[in-house]
Amino acid sequence: MPTPRVEIRYCPKCRWLLRAAWLAQELLTTFEGALGEVALVPAGNGLFQVWLDGELIFSRAEAGRFPEAKELKQLVRDRIAPDKDLGHSDRN
């Protein structure tokens, strides 16, 4: 079975590469061994989306904001490792 693939689509003209890279690092660190790939994909104007195995799990346009690292970790965890404890990221 192939391991999960996360794709972070970001607008390079908006200078959102660093934000996308930081979130990618957070996911790779948290889900070490559980994620097969986190891809950074330059995309259209103003776009910032996170996809997991072809399913859109976060859209800046829909939410009206960027995802928080904690929130993104929870979204990914709920789909690929529901029993994983995220430590402080699971606390309010």
Rank of each mutant, 00 (worst) to 15 (best):
R77G: 01
L28T: 10
G44W: 00
M1W: 11
K84G: 00
F31R: 05
G44D: 07
V76F: 04
F31W: 00
P67I: 03
F48H: 10
F31M: 10
E26Q: 14
C11M: 07
E7F: 00
F31E: 10
T3L: 15
L35S: 08
D90L: 00
D85N: 13
G64R: 09
E62Q: 15
L28N: 11
T29Q: 04
T29Y: 04
G46M: 08
I8H: 01
L47S: 12
A43C: 04
N92I: 12
D85P: 05
V6L: 12
L72K: 05
N92W: 07
A34W: 00
F58Q: 00
E26Y: 03
V50R: 03
R65N: 11
L35P: 01
N45C: 12
E37M: 02
D78Y: 00
T3E: 13
T29H: 06
M1F: 12
P82D: 12
F48V: 07
R79W: 07
P12Y: 03
H88F: 12
L28G: 08
F48I: 04
G36E: 02
T29I: 02
D90W: 01
F66Y: 13
R65V: 13
T29S: 10
G33P: 03
E7T: 15
R19N: 13
V76T: 06
L52R: 05
V41M: 07
R60V: 08
W22P: 04
T29P: 01
R60Y: 08
L35D: 07
P42H: 01
L18C: 09
L28F: 02
T3Y: 13
R91M: 10
R19P: 04
Y10C: 09
R9Y: 01
T3G: 14
G46L: 08
K70D: 09
F66N: 07
E32H: 14
L72R: 08
E26T: 14
